[in-house]
Design a protein around this nucleic acid. Sequence first.
DNA 1: CGCGACGTTGATTTGCCTCAACGATTGTGG
DNA 2: CCACAATCGTTGAGGCAAATCAACGTCGCG
Lengths: 192, 192
Amino acid sequence: MFNYQIFKNIENHISLNDVDKEYLLSLFKVKNILKKEYVLKQGQNCNKIYFVEFGSLRAFNLDDKGKESTIMFAVQDWWITDMNSFINRQPASVSIIALENSQVIALDFNLLEELYLQLPKFERFFRILFQNAYIREQQRVLYNISYTTEERYYQFIEKYPAISQKITQKQIASYLGVTPEFLSSVKKNKRS
Amino acid sequence: MFNYQIFKNIENHISLNDVDKEYLLSLFKVKNILKKEYVLKQGQNCNKIYFVEFGSLRAFNLDDKGKESTIMFAVQDWWITDMNSFINRQPASVSIIALENSQVIALDFNLLEELYLQLPKFERFFRILFQNAYIREQQRVLYNISYTTEERYYQFIEKYPAISQKITQKQIASYLGVTPEFLSSVKKNKRS
DNA sequence: CGCGACGTTGATTTGCCTCAACGATTGTGG
DNA sequence: CCACAATCGTTGAGGCAAATCAACGTCGCG
């Protein structure tokens, strides 16, 4: 029961004893999700944060013109949610969908708040988690505003090879913020 | 001595007694910065995080073609650093410069690590700080890849009026990732 | 087998950049 | 305090980057 991936993930930053793990298991909800099944739908209130035990998910926004923009992918060992919706109790601006059959561990907002009080070391764990997430997003902003599409494409597949294997060209394009047609033409003019 | 802005900022999320404040004061370095003075130069190792007591700063990347990309602005009551450099001990990918005469409070990386150990409630404080920073950056990514330049311009000045007052068109353009000339032409075709 | 989504290609249009020029503002040294 | 230099914001011409739209072969799935 204790050999969930999530414990290893947490123990990268803080230590857990068996009592902690028992307690955590009482908070977690393990969910199996089918390919193409939605974990969250845009507009809903998102009150859970998810950890991917195995499989892969995609979070994307759908605008009023029908254009999809991929905010993030999550493969094994990643955390994912609509953070603004989760923290500030706002309607979600993204949907989260499974790219393949997956297993996630869901942690409810109120239970997480309770966890912070019961085991303050989780403040540290999530401090480090958010710190890294912030760094990643800040670098992504820099790439978006200062690099070309070609550069961003190759940076993406080099930085996230595990993700790149599981997704389509169309999905990478929506992550980069370009059309699939344009990404296709960029790839044709191979790396100079 | 205790009436620094930074204490109010911290007390938005955790409570401080006078002993805490004394201790904090021993960690802080208060710095006055002149307009156009650099707080951090790209390439250096950044081992400090800064809180803006008053004034305003700008963090920007300079690429090999001489193009500036503004990563963030910080006015009174904001925290700013090159987070990747600060946390991962990497060379900074941005410079930070004062837009006007300013006062910042600098906190050293090692002293912050010490602070986490001495006063664990600061894990909570920075957990919340990074959580919010992550949410902001994630929304900025979404804006970047799914909205037009015109939309992003008006969103920026509505969201950050205090910042908008203090900066030039050129700086907004470099934050949005477009040229000053193009931003100028966008503004001419006023909001339809 | 047949449908629908995907990846590609090409033609056309639009968004945005580059470069150059200009007046207006700001800053600076004498 | 003035004169000059530097930077800023704007405008316009031309070129490239990227979107749009339509067409077509391929593949996975029911």
